[in-house]
């Protein structure tokens, strides 16, 4: 049985059909703006949340990468080490290729600093001898920014027999890195869970859409519509939800960044940094939109696979 329509250009007919269906799907969303926006808003929030976390972490990472340069290593020498011996050690260390500069803090200066910082000034007055050791403060070269290189240097210095204790003053930088790593991983976990939530939202919305258009689907099947033809409007609806949700997520993220920009800049100034929040670049924006469109497509695909089969003419 052959009764196929005359088509001069199959491809343009195919393309035309896709265009028509995609705009028809958009039109359907447009005539019920409240329902559409509610679904899109849920998608947007689910996407903006991990996006915001990601940007926050990215910024903290950028900010803290500068701090490692200001790492100091305090070398607490044994108390019986004489000033002369200590100065010799200092001169030797200054030639070390990983060290930029060494500060010498003698016992008296140390005590003064301690008084200032600790507020135990009065109590310390009653000490008859200075219990503090000589301290050499080592500033590693900027090039040794990697935490590993720095801790290697700490170990090396600690082996010197004049040194009682070598202490990295900014241990917390290391802790921060570990924390950032954990946070990074949890963002992946959160993102995956929210992505699944988006799939479920789109899937459920499309399922309702399929139920509402059950009559149309039935008639279409009766007059010979292929599965691909029946699927198409729903898949496009899913993509549109994804697109609208993605754009909304972008707007939400940008607004939140704007709100935080000023206080963060002021905070950074307090730390003598001209750090500025870096927002969503073009690449990240594109990725966000593409990702949310794909989620919309996949979500609707799941619903369509499950529910179109259930509608058969009878």
């Amino acid at each position: 049985m052959r009764n196929s329509p005359p088509r001069k250009n199959r491809f343009s007919a195919y393309l035309g059909n896709h265009l028509r269906v995609s705009f028809a799907s958009l039109g359907r969303l447009y005539v019920q703006p409240v329902a559409t926006l509610m679904t899109a808003a849920v998608i947007a929030i689910a996407l903006a949340l991990p996006m915001g976390l990601y940007i926050a972490l990215d910024n903290v990472g950028q900010l803290s990468s500068g701090w490692d340069g200001s790492t100091q290593i305090s070398l607490f020498l044994h108390t019986e080490v004489k000033t002369r011996e200590a100065q010799k050690l200092m001169q030797r260390l200054q030639k070390h290729k990983a060290i930029k500069k060494v500060e010498f803090i003698d016992k008296d200066k140390g005590l003064e600093q301690f008084k200032e910082i600790s507020g135990f000034g009065d109590a310390l007055k009653h000490l008859d001898s200075n219990p503090l050791p000589i301290v050499l403060v080592v500033h590693p070269k900027m090039t040794t920014n990697q935490p590993d290189r720095t801790s290697q240097l700490v170990k090396e210095l600690g082996k010197n027999k004049l040194v009682e204790l070598a202490q990295l003053d900014v241990q917390w930088v290391k802790r921060l890195y570990t924390f950032l790593d954990i946070a990074n991983r949890s963002i992946w976990v959160i993102s995956s869970m929210l992505a699944i939530a988006v799939l479920l939202i789109v899937g459920n919305t499309i399922r309702l859409d399929i139920q509402n258009r059950c009559e149309e689907i039935e008639v279409s099947k009766l007059i010979g519509a292929s599965d691909a033809f029946i699927r198409r409007p729903f898949l496009y609806t899913g993509i549109w939800y994804g697109l609208i949700g993605g754009v909304l997520a972008w707007i939400i993220t940008q607004i939140s960044l704007l709100l935080m920009e000023d206080p963060i800049h002021r905070l950074a100034l307090l730390y003598h940094s001209d750090f500025r929040l870096s927002g969503l670049g073009a690449g990240l924006t594109l990725l966000l939109i593409l990702f949310s469109c794909s989620l919309g497509l996949v979500g609707s695909w799941i619903a369509v696979r499950r529910h179109l089969k259930e509608i058969e003419p009878s």
Binding site: P5, R7, E216, V219, I223, G224, A225, F229
Partner: peptide, 26 residues
């Protein structure tokens, strides 16, 4: 008759042709 009430008569009748990818003029 299974007509679809969400679209005008013309669109109802055109359905089989759209499904089969006929051109607009046709």
């Amino acid at each position: 008759h299974h007509l679809l009430y969400d679209r005008p008569v013309f669109d109802n009748v055109a359905m089989p042709l759209i499904i089969q990818g006929y051109r607009r003029q046709e």
